[in-house]
């Protein structure tokens, strides 16, 4: 069991998983998002290989309306 904080919300997962798998679980696969892990950008090309660890803090963002 690992626990990951995503956008300030805690989530638990049974198995270790990588960024691509996480995005599928969150129904965000294929969406235009950007992901920061513990303060560092994870490039989209590295989503399949970037494993997530217990205690990771993620930010997942999108573009929204703004001035």
């Amino acid at each position: 069991m690992i626990s990951i904080t995503i956008n300030d919300e805690q989530r638990r997962f049974e198995q270790p998983l990588n960024c691509s798998e996480l995005l599928s679980r969150l129904e965000l696969a294929g969406k235009r998002i950007a992901l920061e892990r513990n303060g560092e950008i994870v490039p989209r090309s590295r989503f399949p290989e970037q494993m997530l660890m217990d205690g990771d803090k993620l930010e997942i963002v999108v573009a929204v309306g703004g001035g």
């Binding site: 956008n7 969150l26 999108v62 929204v64 309306g65």
Partner: peptide, 18 residues
């Protein structure tokens, strides 16, 4: 101009995008 904000997790997966 566009803003960058946290995405909603697990809500409205089919939500349209700006």
């Amino acid at each position: 101009t566009v803003a960058i904000r946290r995405t909603n997790i697990g809500q409205n997966p089919g939500e349209p995008s700006l």
